[in-house]
Design a binder for these strands. Structure first.
Length: 454
RNA sequence: GCCCCCAUCGUUCAGCGGCCUAGGACGCCUGCCUUUCACGCAGGUAACACGGGUUCAAAUCCCGUUGGGGGUGCCA
């Protein structure tokens, strides 16, 4: 039997970290087994689904290198769902119900939820009527989850849930159950927040005549520092945001994979092919995992440093800009790039490294400034450097020998105060090459300004 | 409230009854390299939630406690 998995997002928001991880694990499994990966847009809720978000989701998946073999949209399939629902009604497995939300609230059954009042009233379709699935009153519904082991629910705890809205539009459970059946999905890999939906879908499948069920694998949730499920509201989770902040898709994908799973040989950062080869659903962890941006940054830094120089320059060039957006000269950037490459963990860090080359240096926090500039001999260093830089060749080599020479003569570290004066920071790129790219007057002005502030 | 689930360093993955005086990675700390920072290299810090069983032997199996999470929609 060939494996068929699916990723089924609802287009109610941008692709976020949690869904991306679900998509990724499905994709990994399909690629590992040579199976098919189906993208199914679950847009049955017309009020909340936004068509333009479908393209945004597809775009984020593509960015992550997650490609799909088939694509469907549930809104194209309403007729099919209505047809199976009619069959369910005819078979006595579902029924029309005219109870209003207020009435439902009053009608709470023994186990909570709707008490099934309309079950045998023989209602037909009509204005304001929904279709409910008639859940069994006893017995249990269970499955062997690849990740969690056996999970069991008492049918008595499930109320007769709505499967078709009063608007006539089918809902999640039917659409999902029918599509998995119709599309021959063999493995359902999704977030743990969906476990409670599984018995309902299983019951629905049986009512639709299914004799076999897919293998279910419920992924542990990705949580924030409060250990709560990542939420679009509270947390910074849109995949697109990571993209624009300068994370590499390979790094992001690789990091995502280490949440809930890891290769047995402990080598975490490696080509996707090797990860696919070692991946298996049964090895996925049960406990929720915290999305640790610090570790993501480390992964991203590693991936950035693995890039060949041309690729790095090409990808990071848009970030080589000053405070007002002025781009750094392309040739200059290229010559500076090796130094940039080993210093950034995200491309968005690039401007801080060389914005001072095309714009004013950033305002240095007073504490930082004093730490460097309140040292002995700083005035002497700055005075000497200003004096000796007034003329002479304007090359990195000469700047270096002047600054270092002053330090040698005065027996102090001369680079730090000069760096602080010129770049506004005590940390950064090797100083003299970018410094030589500034005008002599500009450098002298910055040095004198700093001297004046002492 | 009711239903379902989870529990190893601060974080993450490993460990599926003896190889564990618990390993890797991130973070953090120290040192080396270096007249900045970073990279790199060498070290270090730090965990089996608790209580009962089972067993010759438990981080590993069972039960309970505690703590945490998910769900409980005419959302998916």
């Amino acid at each position: 039997m060939t494996v068929r998995v699916r990723f089924s997002p609802a287009p109610t928001g941008y692709l976020h970290v949690g869904s991306a991880r679900s998509a990724l694990f499905n994709w990994m499994y399909a690629r590992k087994t040579g199976g098919a990966f189906v993208l199914r847009i679950e847009d049955t809720d017309a009020d909340r689904s936004q068509p333009q978000l479908v393209e945004a989701i597809r775009e984020s998946l593509r960015w992550l290198g997650i490609d799909w073999d088939e694509e469907y949209r549930q809104s194209d399939r309403f007729d099919r769902y209505r047809e199976v629902v009619e069959k369910l009604v005819a078979d006595g497995r579902a029924y029309y119900c005219d109870n209003t939300p207020e009435e439902i609230k009053a009608r709470v059954g023994e186990h909570g939820g709707y008490d099934g009042y309309s079950r045998d009233r023989g209602l037909g379709p009509g204005e304001g009527r929904v279709v409910r699935f008639r859940t069994p009153d006893d017995g249990t519904t269970a499955w062997d989850d690849v990740i969690r082991g056996r999970v069991e629910f008492d049918n008595a705890d499930m109320d007769d849930f709505v499967i078709v809205r009063s608007s006539g539009v089918p809902m999640f459970h039917v659409a999902n159950a029918y599509d998995d059946l119709d599309m021959g999905i063999t493995h359902v890999v999704r977030g743990e927040d969906l476990v409670n939906a599984t018995p309902r879908v299983l019951l629905l499948r049986e009512a639709m005549g299914a004799t076999e069920h897919p293998v279910y694998a419920h992924l542990p949730l990705i949580v924030n520092e409060q250990r709560k499920k990542l939420s679009k509201r509270r947390d910074d989770v849109a995949v697109g945001d990571y993209r624009s902040r300068g994370y590499l898709p390979e790094a992001f994908r690789n990091y995502l994979l280490t949440l809930g799973w890891g290769p047995k040989d402990d080598v975490e950062i490696r080509p996707i092919e090797e990860l696919v080869e070692r991946f298996d659903l049964v090895d996925i962890n049960k406990a929720p995992a915290f999305f640790d941006v610090k570790k993501l940054d480390h992964f991203n830094g590693e991936y950035i440093r693995m890039l060949d120089l041309d690729t790095f320059v090409e990808q990071s060039a848009p970030y080589a800009i000053g405070p007002d957006g002025t781009p750094v000269d392309a040739d200059l950037y290229r010559s500076l790039a090796p130094g940039v490459q080993e210093r950034v963990r995200r491309y968005e860090e690039v401007p801080a490294l060389l914005g001072w080359v095309v714009g004013p240096p950033p305002e240095t926090p007073g504490k930082e400034w004093r730490k460097v500039m309140n040292k002995d001999l700083v005035p002497e260093v700055l005075d000497a450097v200003v004096a000796r830089l007034a003329e002479g060749p304007w090359t990195p080599e000469h700047l270096g020998s002047v600054v270092m020479g002053v330090g040698d003569e005065l027996g102090t570290r001369s680079q730090l105060p000069v760096r602080m004066a010129v770049t506004g920071s005590r940390a950064g790129l090797p100083l003299f090459e970018p410094m030589a790219a500034l005008d002599r007057d500009e450098v002298l002005r910055r040095l004198r300004d700093a001297r004046g502030r002492l």
